[in-house]
């Protein structure tokens, strides 16, 4: 794929999407809004896994830190939304560095476990200090980004567009290639003279920053911050599924997978409780038979 061609077409797609509020019901806009924030989660995860090769089982650790930082600042100090979101992103970078330390030492399932533990610790911490954090089910926020569906949609779309272009650009740049090389074979990449540690640290910070920002934005869309939306393991699972479903190492596929998952979950709502079952089944069949994900299948056909 040529860079010169991809970027204009991406911008074109984004502009087309920006026209949706003129023709589509508020309900679909609401779904897409949620899908766009989830898309940023999934793209951030893909940067870390697909490119830096780090199996992060706990994307919701980074998301949750950003979201709760922003939520607490807004709830207790009524900071303006933008200040809360930026603070959330900054705290997430610190969380990302915290995760990066073991990542540089550990491999495979061990690092995976540490990320899982990080989520559980955060969850325990939030529940333990329920008096401040609102505990198991959450904290309501005095401010929201917007009340009407159209504005919320445009904010989310713009946020996803900017984040997506940056993440995608990064993945296609020299930095992305070095990351990919060090993700696949760190020793060799190091032997070639690349500073693997520095690049991996950068990947952690960038992934954390966008996860945190998106987490913070999401809670100001919903007007509530809760363990169930931004911390729970299930949230992380959804992000991972979205990225794998859409196609790893593509960044854009992750976004596609996220929107698909959210849309599918809602389309199957009439099935009631069985809807999660069906969505999981579809995802399972997809990864088993089309392991490259949607975008992988689209770009490369079936070859691997």
């Amino acid at each position: 794929m040529l860079k010169s061609k991809t970027f204009p077409s991406l911008v074109g797609i984004l502009l087309l999407l920006a026209l949706l509020p003129f023709g589509v019901s508020g309900y679909i806009l609401g779904l897409l809004t949620l899908g766009y924030y989830t898309a940023v989660f999934a793209m951030s995860w893909d940067l870390l896994f697909g490119f830096a090769g780090e199996v992060n089982f706990g994307p919701s650790f980074l998301i949750g830190v950003g979201a709760y930082t922003a939520g607490l600042l807004n709830h207790y100090y009524t900071w303006p939304i933008w200040a809360c979101v930026i603070s959330g992103g900054a705290m997430s970078i610190i969380a990302g560095l915290l995760l990066a330390v073991p990542a540089l030492r550990l491999k495979g399932p061990y690092f995976g476990l540490v990320t899982l533990v990080a989520v559980l610790m955060l969850q325990n911490f939030i529940v333990l200090f329920a008096g401040i954090t609102g505990g198991e089910i959450g904290l309501d926020l005095p401010d929201v980004l917007a009340v009407d569906d159209g504005s919320n949609y445009w904010i989310a779309l713009a946020f996803m567009g900017v984040s997506g272009l940056i993440l995608f650009g990064l993945s296609r740049s020299a930095v992305g290639l070095i990351l990919q090389a060090s993700g696949q074979d760190a020793v060799q990449a190091g032997a070639l003279g690349f500073n693997v540690t520095k690049h991996k640290l950068a990947a952690f910070c960038i992934s954390a920053l966008f996860s945190g920002l998106s987490g913070a934005m999401l809670i100001f869309y919903e007007g509530t911050v809760s363990v169930g939306t931004v911390v729970d393991i299930a949230v992380g699972v959804q992000v991972i599924i979205a990225a794998v479903l859409g196609g790893r190492r593509t960044i854009l596929g992750a976004a596609l997978g996220a929107v698909f998952l959210i849309g599918m979950g809602e389309m199957l709502r009439p099935l009631g409780e069985a809807s999660t079952f069906v969505v999981s089944a579809i995802a399972l069949v997809t990864i088993m038979f089309v392991p490259g994900g949607f975008l992988g299948a689209l770009l490369h056909g079936e070859k691997r």
Binding site: F49, V55, V237, I240, F277, A281, L284
Partner: peptide
């Protein structure tokens, strides 16, 4: 990673 994701999804299906 595929076995992990696969068994995870399967586990969710059983749970649901």
């Amino acid at each position: 990673i595929f076995v992990l994701t696969g068994t995870l999804l399967w586990g969710i299906m059983v749970q649901e």
